[in-house]
Design a protein around this nucleic acid. Structure first.
Lengths: 230, 230
DNA sequence: TAGATTGTTAATCGATTAACAATC
DNA sequence: TAGATTGTTAATCGATTAACAATC
């Protein structure tokens, strides 16, 4: 069974999303090992550089094939390359920014996109004043132009950096224009048709999670201080 | 059993992290229902506004107590308030920005922090030029001053916006200074002592996840087009 | 060969979902 | 009372971990 058939036909289980996230982290660790001159590493060695167990790593890799040598471990460069092929990071992907406000402009300037072979080919904004101008060398279009621009430029990804109230409408427009992957920075759950991938970067959820933790911590300290019964 | 005892003494299971994330989303949905004038809602109704099942919602809430009325559902305002207390969002938390580069400055300007009662009380940067200056009204200090500043100002949270190579050192310094919660934007896995909470906002992982999805999609399309065997 | 380490199967653990008695 | 919906227990599902035979 090849990786490509995994999710498609009938009974095979799909690769869990968390596995993909870990693959990305393995790739990163391998890159730094490569730089340090290391040539080979075991799953146990890799585990020491991550929060994951060796068995977890081997099982994650098993979804995609066999990459190691028994008794020896993995070739650092080879494994890194294979992971990068699996993750598809060698291919340049064109993206559209939707929402050229503060966050959007910061994202346009963020080098991480380029480093991951993402290329902003267009930006869209509701503000008439901005339409026709350029930011970071990227032209800003009106939302109404999205279908035409996406079709013209092979854009596959939309990066949503609009206010929460506008996010669903923008996502709908992007999907209608043929976009298949969305990176959503708006604090809302988007609903999209099957076959469209959404990843959320939700600062609200992160901040509330930290709040929760600190609040609980206070309580724990309070209870210990006052010697409450166990 | 009260919520506060959950994770602390002996055998009780800890609240799963995903539950906390969903709580944050429920709170957000309830807020918008509140604005729309809705007074009461069932778990099934709530489910329709999220990607989660009604049973999931009831079970998530069960970790913290009983909030509904059988036969009737939940009081929208009441439930939202209770969730906000659980999440601790009513308390103002002081944060330090570490790394006043492009991303860091964008974060200082981001209104979401203030909206969640996070207040940047100080910023830190390795660049001597920046030390002593202000950004968005926040003073920038040298990293060497972190212990003193954190002690003086009751800072509980560090927002890490430094290059990956510097992240672990900065995290260590923050932890030594007494910080208990870290929001990490650097693409690295930080290692921190027990009792310190780290949340990662890792664009690399998100981008590689989207790449993976698009790559797989291509394969699927390719295979269907060439009518490969099932 | 002996030691190390993979790839994979089986056991465990935990989270989600289904079912339903309690009760408004 | 009948209908609706909770809170909770039990069943299911899936992911992680442990164990180990295969093999370098």
């Amino acid at each position: 069974m090849t990786a490509s058939t995994l999710t498609v036909f009938g009974t095979e289980r799909a690769v869990p999303e968390v596995t993909i996230e870990r693959l990305s982290i393995y790739s990163r660790v391998l890159r730094s090992l490569e730089l340090s001159g290391r040539e080979t590493i075991s799953s146990a060695g890799l585990a020491r550089h991550t929060p994951y167990a060796a068995a977890q790593i081997r099982r994650d890799l098993a979804w995609f094939g066999q990459f190691g040598t028994r008794g020896k471990g993995y070739d650092v460069t080879n494994l890194r390359r294979q992971l990068d092929v699996i993750l598809g990071v060698h291919v340049t992907r064109r993206a559209a920014l939707i929402g050229a406000g503060n966050l959007g402009l910061a994202l346009l300037g963020y080098t991480g996109f380029r480093e991951h072979n993402f290329e902003f080919a267009a930006a869209f904004d509701a503000n008439r004043q901005k339409v026709g101008t350029y930011a970071q060398g990227v032209r800003i279009y009106a939302m109404s132009e999205i279908a035409a621009v996406v079709a013209d430029t092979d854009i596959e990804i939309a990066v949503l950096a609009v206010p929460a109230v506008a996010a669903q409408d923008c996502a709908d427009a992007a999907v209608r224009a043929g976009i298949k992957a969305l990176l959503n920075f708006a604090p809302t759950q988007l609903s999209v048709p099957d076959g469209v991938q959404v990843r959320n970067v939700d600062l609200s959820v992160e901040l509330e999670h930290l709040s929760y933790f600190l609040e609980r911590r206070q309580e724990r300290i309070g209870r210990i201080a006052s010697s409450d019964p166990p």
